[in-house]
Design a binder for these strands. Structure first.
Lengths: 229, 229
DNA sequence: GGCCGGATTAGACCAGTCGTCTAGAACTCC
DNA sequence: GGAGTTCTAGACGACTGGTCTAATCCGGCC
């Protein structure tokens, strides 16, 4: 029953987008793109939007490709299978998110606690403007496919570990700076923050309101972290 | 784009299960079902297992029906559509969970805090024995379909509100009994607990370990609730 | 017994699924 | 200019998806 499955993990094969096809208009949307993004990225972007909205199994390849303005034949040039595509989607979302995290956390002009706070408030602001529909792709894909596909599972797990580690690091700095009670174990506290944030994000989608994110911020920064002892 | 969609919300059409269903209990009470469970319930049970494992869009009707030993033609006698079936799935999971919650919380022989703790520890124990794969159907379906289907969304939302309300209630009792710091607002605290638990459940599936649930228990009952101030 | 009418089932139906495959266009490098 | 690689193009196939209509079952009624 199970397909043969071609072991290799994936990892963008090289730099396939030589010069990024100039012609080939057909692109429905993009009005003034300086250099139109390479095909692979276009597929991923369309996929992220669609999968975020309708789930991984909820949308078909054809739909994604049509939205990306890319023919089917190209898809299988860049990805081995839909599953492989899912992994790429997660890696992309993870890299994007972790990069933004590192940017915030590396801002030495602010105190560690302020930096920590900023990463959550930033997302909150984004959700406020884009509507609470903004989807966290990762938990979504995680719940939907993690039980089925080992590669997807691995990608998700890795994303969470890195995320937790970054938070733990800034907590340590905040403790050194005396901004956070030393009684908290940084690693456990980081896990708690990540879990709570995750839960808030899920709840936000359910309530269709950013209220849960506000609850998160209020609880974490007004109650939890400043706690004596 | 969107299908015509047959207006009526759903709500089990009447009493389709003529005799078969011993009036389809619904009042959880039903002790021992001598007669084999009615068809509708069999479909729901099979669906819960399969959807929990593979997602709502990840498994087809035929698969569910085959597992339930019910012919395909019968499905549309009991449900209007697959979406309607999804709603029923959620309502079933919600009723089951909330009932078990009420049982625990109504146990007057224990202190409010002990009761609160027991509902989480109970699930933890269950996950430990059944493997961490145990799926919370509700968040899964919520993330997967809530953006698409209004009825599903409503069912999920309702489930969370009731859940939160139950937790808030027992927190109030615990505060009256002096077991939990009064500085916490019961409603907000309940939301935080629910979010955190939700996040822990998601994380459990990702880590494939009940570690996150233990982190939850330790954090909530050793650190958060006993907090002075 | 003959008939009726609702409950239940069987299976056809087609749109849509993922994935394959062959042609050829576009570009690079010799 | 020509050879070779990369990428695009989209028809195609095998299959499954959810849905629905037409037939069957079965107990009750005259």
């Amino acid at each position: 029953m199970s397909k043969p499955r071609a072991r290799t993990s994936s990892r963008r094969k090289s730099a396939p987008a030589t010069r990024a096809a100039r012609r080939h208009s057909s692109s429905a949307g993009a009005p003034a793109e300086p250099v139109e993004p390479d095909t692979r990225e276009r597929i991923l972007a369309a996929g992220a939007a669609l999968v975020g909205a309708k789930g991984f199994n909820g949308c078909g390849l054809s739909e994604i490709l049509q939205r990306a303005g890319v023919p089917k034949g190209s898809f299988y040039h860049y990805f081995e299978s839909k599953e492989d595509f899912g992994v790429a989607l997660i890696e992309r979302a993870r890299d994007e998110y972790l990069d933004s995290l590192r940017t915030h956390l590396g801002d030495r002009k602010r105190s560690p606690l302020a930096r920590l706070r900023s990463i959550f408030e930033d997302t909150r602001a984004e959700c406020e403007s884009n509507g609470p529909t903004v989807e966290c792709l990762i938990p979504k894909l995680a719940l939907e496919t993690a039980t089925l596909s080992e590669p997807v599972h691995a990608a998700v797990k890795c994303a969470y570990q890195q995320w937790s580690a970054l938070i733990a690091q800034v907590i340590r700095e905040a403790q050194s700076a005396g901004e956070v009670a030393r009684s908290h174990d940084p690693d456990h506290l980081a896990d708690v923050l990540v879990m709570l944030w995750e839960g808030a994000a899920v709840r936000m989608q359910i309530d269709r309101s950013i209220g849960p994110l506000d609850d998160f911020l209020a609880f974490v920064f007004d109650t939890l972290l400043p706690a004596r002892r």
